[in-house]
Design a binder for these strands. Structure first.
Length: 722
RNA sequence: GCACCCUUAGCUCAGCUGGUUAGAGCGUUCGAUUCACAUUCGAAAGGUCGAAGGUUCGAAUCCUUCAGGGUGCACCA
């Protein structure tokens, strides 16, 4: 019995650029990304149940970066693994409108090219421009996502701004409004003078900055500030009730003093918010432009007068300074105070944190504004009948184990965040986004998708982009309609995302799902680290250290790119990625390719029944044990260890030892031993391909197609070995 | 200020619920290679596991303190 050559021995070396498009095509044609197709084809094991992941939708603004690539790799591994195990497996793709970031980006571009603002264009024209931009950008993202080998179900693709998602947003808003969770009110909010909108607490990023710190004489007191331009309206002077230095002053006492624009009457307020350790222990407050001051003012029922308008221009209260921009006015104000002899001293190098809008905006100026909020401390009735606040339910859902966060230490971070959570400002004064479904007429408010009738006008504002994102796990499945998908796939199995959006997104999905559905949006939260450069620095344009995933795919293949993002990446830890690493895994793909060549060269496809030699039997057993170990690691979300285990078995054990030991056998003339070994290594190759498929789907599928076995379906839906 | 994480070979990291001479990849050095391998194979060098205490028969692993690095939240007028 001569070992016959495989019918079409494939060429060396493995060339991903040539193979990947055909494989991609075969997957797409098969329709196996869709669980319904899988079920019809009989590759689903009904006893296993379902497995579902909703893809964190990339922003339509950009292109795919390494963070996305890592996310796609991780989720695709989980999905392919479960699909092979026979679960009815769904992975839903989508893209996010990223309202504020998108509008900001398009506006900036228009201004650069045409020197026009959105007000020059008008709402309709701006929306047209944004839509055109989104359309183009979205096609790019989708295409790139596919190239990573992501086995998503594109038939269920969702976009946060499409019709069905809009319906979900309106429904959510109405229900929350009716329950009293959503309210409208004058509150101090984070106002971005550049983008002309309010933003939520979580979108604020504090940036360290050095500024002069001024000490002014304020009647008998010395007060400190970095912002003299806010001080025009200061007529309340606050000190701690226990401060012995000021015990002679009584709460509510009036004091006449000389201030920027002449004599004023100040009122003494005793409040514990004043820090006795800081400066003189005395401060004046500006309730209209400071969250803390606003709180103090509310406690004592003080009035809050605006000093600065929406664009950062001083109002009439500033007297001679009216109409000036705060930036320019500051020095002049200090000069005036100095002329009056009210400047005590100036610390030039005072370091403090300035609030900025992290979504490409400007320096935040707190303003009192009429906005929409979600109350997190209001007790309401949930669908499961319980009375509780959103905050409580968000905490409980993790505490009682309905949601499991990995790595575990993020639970603590989550609790810490919840405990500090304040009402969520959900209205934005930008045009791109879901328009708030609220209607006004004669001081009356109605909510709903449609105008209640003649004469009602809709709110001009739009919703915070995270409002619609919060609905994502169920809006993608058809909610508020009671769809089959919703029944079958919700709660989803895993929510996998970067730890940097735990609060923005994960927490908000929990909030929304608990209130609207009465159940958790997912059973597991798996947080991956951020992808950094070889030196551990953030990848950024300015550093020029960006590694583009698509470049890596083109040069080394999608499989190598995926592996480089998985191996060495412990859950929640940042991953340092270098091109060398990707290149290293390209060698592994080639290794596997050559293993297959060797095995097929020594495979007799007419081999029907073999009596296995004992040693060969053990080799097969060994590969099954590896399979068990790989499964275990995937089940516990240690994809790094799972990939590493498979990698080492295939390279160090299978190739370096088992195949080497086989060579003398094949050179010998013991036909029974040859047949047994042929069978064994073929079987181990088969197992290896299945094990590696979730990690490196392309090369494994490419080899699978070359195997001389009849009536074979795609490896994508082949059975997992154990 | 409050909290969380990290500190193991030159570099990047594994070492889980404590148990034999502490592991891998990359890098370095040496050797082999017309036999599946645009390469691969073999071998070597290299670590007082951040520091100091403690618990224990036994600690890289558990506890305490400290130092350095990172991150989140809050924020000072």
């Amino acid at each position: 019995m001569e070992p016959s050559k495989a019918p079409e021995l494939f060429l060396k070396p493995y060339n991903p650029a040539e193979r990947e498009p055909e494989i991609l095509d075969a997957w797409e044609k098969s329709g196996y990304g869709n669980p319904d197709t899988c079920e019809r084809a009989g590759v689903v094991d009904p006893s296993k149940g379902t497995y579902s992941i909703v893809l964190p939708p990339p922003n339509v603004t950009g292109t795919l970066h390494m963070g996305h690539a890592a996310m796609l790799a991780i989720e695709d591994i989980l999905i392919r693994y479960h699909r092979m195990r026979g679960y009815k497996t769904l992975w839903v793709p989508g893209t996010d409108s990223a309202a504020l970031a998108t509008q900001s980006k398009v506006e900036t571009e228009i201004y650069k090219k045409e020197k026009k603002t959105r007000h020059d264009l008008g709402r309709e024209e701006l929306m047209r421009r944004i839509d055109a931009f989104v359309e183009e950008s979205r096609a790019t993202i989708v295409n790139q996502t596919k190239k990573m080998g992501s086995s998503l179900d594109w038939s269920r693709y969702a976009y946060t701004m499409d019709e069905r998602r809009y319906a979900a947003v309106v429904e959510a808003f109405v229900r929350m409004y009716d329950a009293g969770l959503i309210y409208r009110g004058d509150r101090i909010v984070n106002w971005d003078p550049k983008l002309q909108t309010a933003v939520s607490d979580d979108e604020i990023e504090y940036v360290e900055q050095k500024d002069p710190f001024y000490h002014f004489q304020y009647g008998p007191f010395v007060i400190g500030t970095v912002r003299p331009e806010t001080k025009f309206g200061d007529k309340y002077v606050v000190m701690h009730p226990d401060d012995q230095r000021y015990k002679e002053y009584a709460h509510g006492q009036k004091i006449d003093l000389e201030w920027i624009n002449g004599p004023i009457t100040a009122t003494i307020i005793k409040d514990e918010a004043a820090d006795m350790e800081f400066g003189s222990g005395v401060m004046t407050i500006t309730p209209a432009h400071s969250a803390i001051d606003f709180e103090i003012a509310q406690r004592h029922h003080l009035d809050a007068e605006r000093v600065i308008d929406d664009r950062g221009i001083l109002l009439p209260i500033a007297g001679a300074f009216e109409g000036q921009h705060i930036k320019k006015a500051r020095a002049a104000i200090v000069d005036k105070l100095r002329a009056k002899g009210l400047v005590v001293k100036v610390d030039e190098d005072y370091t403090h944190n300035v609030a900025t809008n992290s979504r490409g905006g400007g320096i935040i100026e707190p303003q009192i504004k009429l906005q929409w909020f979600i109350g997190v401390n209001k007790a309401v009735r949930f669908p499961d009948g319980k009375m509780a606040t959103l905050k409580e339910r968000m905490r409980e859902s993790v505490e009682d184990g309905a949601i499991n966060i990995l790595p575990e230490h993020f639970e603590k971070i989550y609790y810490h965040w919840i405990d500090n959570l304040r009402d969520w400002c959900i209205s934005r004064q930008i045009w791109f986004g879901h328009r708030i479904p609220a209607w006004f007429k004669d001081g009356e408010i109605r909510v709903g998708a449609e105008s209640p009738g003649e004469g009602w006008t809709q709110d001009e504002d739009t919703l915070d982009t995270w409002f619609s994102s919060g609905l994502w796990t169920f809006s993608t499945l058809g909610w508020p309609e009671e769809t089959e998908d919703l029944k079958v796939y919700h709660p989803t199995s895993v929510l996998e995302t970067g730890y940097d959006i735990l609060f923005f997104w994960v927490a908000r999905m929990i909030l929304m799902s608990m209130f609207l559905l009465g159940e958790a949006p997912f059973k597991n939260v798996y947080l991956h680290g951020l992808v950094r450069d070889g030196q551990g620095r953030k990848m950024s344009k300015s550093l020029g250290n960006i590694i583009d995933p698509l470049d890596m795919v083109a040069k080394y293949g999608a499989d190598a790119t995926r592996l480089s993002l998985i191996i060495g990446a412990a859950p929640g830890n940042d991953l340092k990625l270098s091109e060398d690493k990707v290149r290293g895994y390209k060698n592994f793909a080639n290794k596997l390719w050559n293993i297959a060549r060797f095995v097929l060269e020594h495979y007799d496809q007419h081999l029907v029944q073999v009596r296995l030699a004992q040693g060969d039997d053990e080799l097969i057993d060994e590969s099954m044990k590896v399979a068990t170990s790989v499964s275990h690691h995937i089940d516990t979300f240690r994809l790094d260890l799972a990939a590493d285990t498979a990698y080492h078995f295939v390279w160090d054990r299978f190739a370096a030892e088992i195949l080497e030991e086989s060579k003398p056998i094949f050179r010998g003339d013991d036909q029974a031993a040859i047949a047994s070994r042929q069978y064994a290594i073929h079987k181990i190759l088969d197992t290896s391909l299945r094990l590696l498929h979730p990690f490196m789907p392309f090369v494994t599928e490419a080899i699978w197609r070359e195997l001389p076995t009849k009536e074979r379906d795609l490896l994508m839906v082949a059975k997992w070995p154990v």
